[in-house]
Nucleic acid binder design. Sequence first.
RNA 1: GCGCCCAUAGCUCAGUUGGAUAGAGCGUCGGACUACGAAUCCGAAGGUCGCAGGUUCGAAUCCUGCUGGGCGCACCA
Length: 573
Amino acid sequence: MFKEALRRYLEEAARRAVARGALPDVPLPPVEVEVPRGRRHADYASSLPLALAKPAGRPPREVAQALVDALEIPPAHVSRAEVAGAGFVNFFLAPAWLQELLRRIHAAGDRYGNRDLGRGQRVNVEFVSANPVGPLHIGSGRNGLIGDVLSNLLAALGYQVTREYYINDAGTQVHNLALTVEHHYFASFGRERPFPADGYRGEYARDLARKVAERDAETWLDRPEAERLAAFRDAALEQILAETRQTLEEFGIRYDLWFSERTLYDQGAVDRTLAALREKGLLYDHDGAVWFRSTAFGDDKDRVIIRSSGWPMYYAADIPYHLNKLERGFDHLIDVWGVDHIGDIARVKGGLAALGVDVDRLEILLYQHVRLRNEGELLRMSRRRGEYVSLADLLAAVGRDAARYFFCMYTPSVPMDFDWELARKQSQDNPVYYVQYAHARISSIFREAAEHPAGRALAGSGLLATDGEGGVAPGAVQGADLSPLTHEAEIALIHTLADLPDVIELAGLRREPQRLCAYAREVAEAFHGFYTQCRVLSDDAGLSGARLILTAAARIVLRRTLGLIGVSAPDRM
RNA sequence: GCGCCCAUAGCUCAGUUGGAUAGAGCGUCGGACUACGAAUCCGAAGGUCGCAGGUUCGAAUCCUGCUGGGCGCACCA
């Protein structure tokens, strides 16, 4: 709220200065207002004069002085505005404005930080979408976290978000899975069946076969192969998808839609896409396969779209899948993909462009892979070899909160090493506890307040809520006296709480969930500092009341931030 | 070889889309509990922001080249 207002004040000042002749009438560059690093020089600062100096043909400090002279800001908002450094305008906020922020936070409650940038635009976020050929591995944890948190952020920014999981239940991967199950199924009845060349080595494949054997006994041994493989495929899919769903739910992710790739084949969407591409002259036959002229859309070479065996490539269905999403009325599509899929972008986008789609509506969000480290040693993971740690294993070892926070901490475009040993420790080394501890401390204060004389007095005056979990009554905050909040640590905490809307906006629009973790830590740090220096419950009822209001505002912000990350905000630890 | 991503404290990473003296956590060293939770707080040490140029009032941030790493360049996904 402060940045926006200050931006407006500056724009008005610039207009006024021009009208007065103090500044030449040149186009105003974008007015940036920011928090100086560490809030060392001021509460807020603008480099507008530096940007304006050149077009205005005047020294930056002179421009800054003209702007400061033309500023008209109520003293209740800004106590001081001055020229500083090479030509900055520094702002120092008045206590009354900071107090107003606290009232706003309480009035907004768990909606504090929301904005309406999306104006109800419909966004589809598709994430994880792992091949249903085995348990989810930890890379899917990173994928899931990014997609889920981004969805939370976009919802907070006023977009109408749909979370979607694309089930790759057609194609060669699930076929290979069916062959693998077949091998184990036959083996369980003492019959030989060669292990498929591209089979899945994990122990889970044996379990899948055992379940089928338990259910259907030996009925499949002598049935036609096609029928048998279809049955094995479906049984395996059902089992794996049930586990996938459960693991993701334990991870805190719920989807609005699970979309089956096979339906695209069944409903002829893939054939229609191929026919449309063929009609536009973008397909040709060569070496017994069908090729897509993807070089026409920036790819470095043409790609096979239907193998000589007749099986279409994965992306042959991916093109109609994205068409389908657009036909369902989404304004914008976001896919979260691992970097190893980077090569697919040109093909899918090329296919969509060929069919007349504005490909800017499809955004592919790439994240770098997760490596697992144990006692300093990097582990290579391979699903084909069955050598990897599953997301379910990770959740069982470290819990949802630590897992989510950990995945959220790292910038998606940077590879991350998951330190298994550290994560297993479940100790205070884990940054999530630092933040959660701040929240638990706040709850503890409110538990204490119910017993404390000052707290009882405040409950009597209606400020402290006596029902539910305690906390302050939002209505009573509006008329409360917040002027006792003058301590350095109190002011610093309020400033930190003011940043939430910007954090949500930046994290959401730039697709950088790690900002939430950095911010959560800042809020916790500011609160711990306040807590150490300022006693909340004292025999001064006025001061206690004001500090309880500040404390409750910090709780709102912590909950909101942790909630966006999908991490719990415990009242006790 | 070509394309994308990356290189910041001993380690793991931030760095508000070009701003003022580059920040945290862990680790190391030293302090703080007879009042609301010490899973906390305060302090110290630790940096040629991979290297070299360039752009400008100003660069960790933008451009070029180089070095070093990750990923891709399949009739796999």
